[in-house]
């Protein structure tokens, strides 16, 4: 059936709505991952020591970094899973083609990124409450005060990072769907890169490019731009495949 006779927007909306209902199980893994991250975070994300007079002083730092990194990994894996046969089969409940399937997947991944961002930020309070109630520490300088603008920027950036990681996962998923050899090539490439670039600043430069930019507009352009390019490549790759394998 040609899509000329069908309203593309309506199909995407239907597919998106269906995916939101059908893929809720993906969020149970997110919950488990975030709780594991909270558990790991209890040991702190850094420690620093000094001496004052006759006293040794140590400060242990805690943050939601591990929770967010784990949620990024979840977004990455979730996106890969969406490209697998188990999940793509559900697309054909509706009259669909690759375009509607991809766009509804991207919409779902965006919603998943928003949910991941909200829950990972709230999970930090779970960590804080556990620490405050069960650990007899001297708490100091809870955190630097941040303005409403910085908070909103930080929250939106969290969504963009999750969305970008899901875009990377989606591209890897599409590559492996296109040719199973990529299942071996991609991990080999990643591990190989890590070995080759040990001691070089390339990985650090890439991380600085995204994570060390204090301009929200610039971060927005970088993350959303990267996501757009990655999703675009994924869509082009998926168009080269059969409609239904």
């Amino acid at each position: 059936m040609s899509l000329n006779n069908v309203d593309i927007k309506r199909v995407i909306r239907q597919q998106f709505s269906y995916k939101c209902k059908a893929n809720t199980s993906l969020f149970t893994s997110m919950i488990v991952i975030q709780l594991i991250a909270v558990l790991f975070s209890l040991s702190g994300t850094g420690m620093i020591g000094t001496s004052i007079g006759y006293n040794g002083v140590s400060i242990q730092f805690y943050s939601g970094d591990i929770v967010l990194v784990f949620t990024m990994i979840w977004a990455f894996i979730t996106a890969i899973m969406l490209t697998t046969k188990t999940y793509t089969e559900t697309d054909y409940v509706f009259v669909a083609n690759h375009l509607t399937s991809n766009l509804s997947n991207i919409a779902f991944l965006f919603v998943a990124s928003v949910i991941g961002a909200i829950t990972s930020l709230l999970a930090v309070y779970l960590l804080k409450v556990v620490m405050l109630l069960f650990f007899d520490h001297g708490w100091m300088a809870a955190s630097q005060e941040i303005s409403v603008g910085q908070w909103v920027s930080g929250f939106l950036t969290t969504i963009f990072y999750l969305f970008m990681f899901s875009a990377i996962g989606y591209l890897i998923g599409q590559l492996t769907q296109r040719n199973k050899l990529f299942i071996v090539i991609i991990p080999a490439f990643i591990i190989g890169s890590l070995v080759i670039f040990v001691g070089s600043t390339i990985l650090m430069d890439i991380s600085q490019f995204y994570f060390n930019d204090s301009s929200f507009f610039s971060v927005f352009i970088k993350t959303v731009g990267t996501s757009f390019i990655l999703f675009l490549i994924s869509m082009v790759l998926s168009n080269g495949q059969e409609v239904r394998k």
């Binding site: 006759y54 730092f61 943050s63 955190s143």
Partner: peptide, 18 residues
């Protein structure tokens, strides 16, 4: 005498701007 203190820090996307 060893003193131990703990401090919460914001998650990195927030620290990025603050």
């Amino acid at each position: 005498n060893e003193l131990y203190f703990s401090s919460f820090k914001s998650t990195f996307p927030f620290r990025q701007y603050s």
